[in-house]
Nucleic acid binder design. Structure first.
Length: 560
RNA sequence: UGGGGCAUGGUGCAAUGGCAGCACACCGGACUUUGAAUCCGUGGAUCUAGGUUCGAAUCCUGGUGCCCCAGCCA
């Protein structure tokens, strides 16, 4: 297991410590996790999850789950449910504090009225295009809207009628009256409300005006008494606006803190791109095990503790960064190594016939599930017979240098069974080896020679007579490139989806104890990798295994 | 050529004026009934130029590079 040497602090905790020293929030720490229900949670969100829930817990505080559902045209209950399942799977608990920004629509509306009355908001009638033209550019100030200074009463009247549904989509907006010349574009009279005659997944058709994120998030935090509102770096430019609304309203003022979001090599993380992969069929839905979504990782067999551990290891900072996916894979292997019982399975079968083993005879071996762990003596029974399946890769008629598996004339160990020596091969008309003949030494039962002689190679096997047929799905990185988003001019990231990211193996051979394998149970297929039954397609009649992650393969590296 | 942020081995994160460290990756070795795991070991970093200081990754000044912002998205 990886050492628990993660840094004990980070810049966010230092800020909180400072607040606690000065008593800004009376020692209280209350955070929120604010997903928009418009897609599945991915590994990047896990960073926010671990920060939001982890920090609150560390300080003895609470975390609210709050859906940021202010845009009905993009959101759906399907995602609300999926998100909750993912959070629970990771082991986080929001108690009964499941909230929605849409719960606050009425209060938000009242706040807008208040700002209008204070002369800090106005109804604008500029079209989207006109508004864009008036906004100015990064280097030039914007122009004030001709509607900017109309009387409070008129604003009130118009805003009420916006709510009443008197105007078509896009015809009017409510804007904050701040500063069209601000160097921060977010302060150039940002839109607070837009007209959207759309059905909301929670409020139905009650509303036809919806608040913008900037007008909803800070106040939602405030209403819930959130003390520390963590978000990603791109919201840094929004903090002045977040603060402005809170101050203009004179309500409880949480602290927004921004951190760098997680980027991972060999994958893409934006919801837009993930959606594209799904919609254009590059993958089989949001839960395709190659996706970086939590649902996909669960299906693929990543243990949730490993994902949490990974997030703890990468730390928190404000530095834009790309984490190598190898670290995630390391943590997954590390965890699985501890919890996954060993099994024998042959992925690419080759027949091995023991010529001097009595025909028709079988025997059983009692084999340990965790041979590397002296404290866990769990065992299972594995049948053995005259004809076995071994891996094609475990036999070479003309061995490469340093190859020490099965090859004519060399003695190797069949794991937990006997020493065997290959003598001859059967080939098909194309010259492919289809069976290997060997002899065994009955004096090596269990895998050790009475005379103490050693063998260099140990290979795994499955009794042909008892084997169960199954399918295996081997996954590799979705993209071969480290940074699939860094593309030459004119190329699309979907063109780079790796054709090797999925390899389906029909007719793999399993030891019989795998018959009852269920999704959510992890196995190590000895010398091959970690596998789990597929939660969508596997059944008792037709077992289908996902390869969660291969074992480290020093031999393959040597061969390159 | 506006504003906001960020620069430490290949990657990510520490070091908060006092010996630049940890993890992954890489490389070498030991051990091995998994070419896994485990164990041991090597190499490799403070963007740059000045300044302050006995002493700077850390403080100051200038430069350079990268990221974000011109949605009625979040």
């Amino acid at each position: 297991m990886t050492e628990q040497i993660t840094p004990k602090t980070n810049f966010i905790k230092e800020i909180i410590d400072e607040h606690n020293r000065t008593g800004r929030f009376g020692g209280r720490v209350h955070t929120r996790f604010p997903p928009e229900p418009n897609g599945y949670l991915h590994i990047g969100h896990t960073k926010a999850l671990v920060i939001d829930f982890g920090i609150a817990e560390e300080y003895g505080g609470l975390t609210n789950l709050r859906y940021d559902d202010t845009n009905p045209v993009k959101e759906d209950v399907e995602y609300v449910d999926a998100i909750k399942e993912d959070i629970r799977w990771l082991g986080f608990d929001w108690g009964d504090r499941e909230y929605y920004a849409s719960d606050y629509f009425e209060q938000l509306y009242d706040m807008a009225i208040e700002l209008i009355k204070a002369g800090k908001a106005y109804v604008d009638e500029l079209s989207a295009e006109e508004m864009r033209e008036n906004r100015g550019t990064l280097t030039e100030p914007g122009k004030e809207s001709p509607w900017r200074n109309r009387p409070v009463e008129e604003n009130l009247n118009l805003f009420e009628r916006m709510r009443a549904g008197e105007f078509p989509d896009g015809s009017k907006t409510l804007r904050a009256k701040i500063d069209m010349a601000s160097p921060n574009m977010n302060m150039r009279d940002p839109v607070m409300y837009r007209i959207l005659h759309a059905e909301h997944h929670r409020t139905g058709n009650k509303w036809c005006i919806y608040p913008m994120y900037d007008f909803a998030h800070g106040q939602s935090d405030s209403i819930e008494g959130i003390t520390h509102s963590m978000c990603s770096l791109e919201y840094e430019n929004h903090r002045p606006l977040y603060d402005w609304f809170l101050d203009a309203l004179g309500i409880f003022h949480p602290q927004q803190i921004e951190f760098a979001r997680l980027n991972l090599t060999h994958t893409v993380m934006s919801k837009r791109k993930l959606r594209k992969l799904v919609e254009e069929g590059y993958v089989d839905g949001w839960t395709d095990p190659r996706m970086p979504t939590l649902a996909a990782m669960r299906r693929r067999g990543y243990p949730p503790q490993a994902i949490r551990k990974f997030i703890e290891l990468i730390g928190v900072a404000k530095n834009d960064s790309f984490v190598e996916v190898e670290l995630l894979e390391h943590v997954v292997r590390d965890e699985l190594n501890l919890i996954a019982p060993r099994r024998m399975a042959i992925l690419k079968p080759l027949k091995l016939i023991i010529d001097n083993y009595p025909k028709g005879e079988t025997e059983e071996f009692e084999v340990r599930d965790f041979p590397q762990n002296p404290e866990n003596d769990a065992r299972r029974t594995v049948p053995f017979g005259r004809e076995l399946w071994i891996e094609q890769d475990d036999f070479m008629e003309e061995p490469a240098p340093k190859y020490f598996r099965l090859t004519p004339g060399r003695e190797v160990r069949l794991m937990n069974a006997y020493f065997v020596t290959a003598h001859s091969v059967e080939k098909d008309e194309e010259g492919n080896v289809v069976a290997v003949h060997c002899t065994y030494d009955p004096e090596t039962r269990g895998g050790n020679a009475l005379d103490g002689r050693k063998v260099k190679g140990t290979i795994h096997w499955v009794s042909a007579e008892h084997a169960i047929d199954a399918e295996a799905r081997l996954y590799d990185h979705l993209f071969k490139d480290d940074f699939p988003e860094d593309l030459p001019e004119g190329e699309v990231f979907t063109d780079h989806v790796s054709p090797d990211s999925l390899e389906v193996l029909k007719g793999i051979k399993l030891e019989p104890s795998l018959k009852e394998a269920k999704p959510g149970q992890f196995y190590q297929f000895v010398r091959n990798g970690y596998f789990t039954a597929d939660s969508v397609d596997s059944s008792e009649e037709k077992l289908i295994f996902n390869r969660t992650i291969s074992l480290v393969d020093t031999w393959a590296k040597l061969m390159k």
